[in-house]
Amino acid sequence: MNSKYREERHRPPYYLLTGLLLGLLIGFAVTFILLPVQYSNVPPETLQSVDKDQYRLMIAYAFKSDHDIGRANARLGLLREENLSEVVLNQAQRSERRSDAQILLNLSEALKETPSTVATMLPPTPQTIIQSPTITKEPTKNSITETIIPTIQTIRTATEGPTESVSTKTPFPSPTTINSSTIPFRLSSQKIVCNPNYLAPYIQIEVFDKSNNPMANIRVLVSWDGGQDIFYTGYFPEISSGYADFEIEPSIAYSIRIGEIGEVVDQIIAPECKDDSGNTYWGTVYLDFSEP
């Protein structure tokens, strides 16, 4: 009797493990299947593939209507894909409706004819800019003809996005006047931005000239252990023409250089922030550079 009693007492509490597993199963079923997290305020790059297809199709339809390849390029750039022409062509090939396929094909062909710098969503290099004097003039939609696309469209890509109006209201400083390779940009200020609405941690950069005016088309080199990327200011005119941002991984330290000979700011790491409920999330680093 005693020995049997001892055996029962030493038996591991498997029922607790079973209960925990059952709870996990119920919980995961609810949180991932029945009531998954609903995101809002998302950018197009996060769309599911079906919706990305629809987004591309919309761009193709709009392009068919306005024949504005710069605008189509800027819109496609929001999906952050490479080889835009091929992506659109692939979609045309798997399109169910013949009319959609033709519209997408037209866009793909138009994209092929534009310079590769546009297709990869990169603004032109300073050399390219200097070679095209016509870009000092803010182009209007109606003034674009096929012959001037290679020079004007490259700039419109940087200025034109979903909120094209901003670029119309506040024209960017002419890229011909900017030669960022000879400007030793310096860090003016650095601050941590805790905004729970941001979907991911970012490095936000804003570049100003001597008169404190934002500077567009300034090259930004971001590097980290095992990689680097180059981008340019001016993609988000609705924020500022001197603004650019870069999504970062929380556990990686990054370094930034503005222009060719600007000050290098290193050890940039996503800060940890807390919301009102005490939950932690990754914040953003804001860097303000200026021409000395």
């Binding site: 029922y15 607790l16 493990l17 079973t18 209960g19 925990l20 597993l21 059952l22 709870g23 996990l24 199963l25 119920i26 919980g27 995961f28 609810v30 949180t31 991932f32 998954p36 997290v37 995101y39 998302v42 996060t46 769309l47 599911q48 919706d51 979907l199 991911a200 991984e249 929380p250 939950n279 990754w282």
Partner: peptide, 24 residues
């Protein structure tokens, strides 16, 4: 134990959302 399991999975599913958002 079941409640603890539900709480853990709710935290993982709703609070600790993925860093990279896709499929929106």
């Amino acid at each position: 134990a079941i409640s603890a399991g539900i709480l853990i999975s709710a935290f993982l599913g709703w609070v600790r959302t993925p860093q990279k958002i896709t499929n929106t």
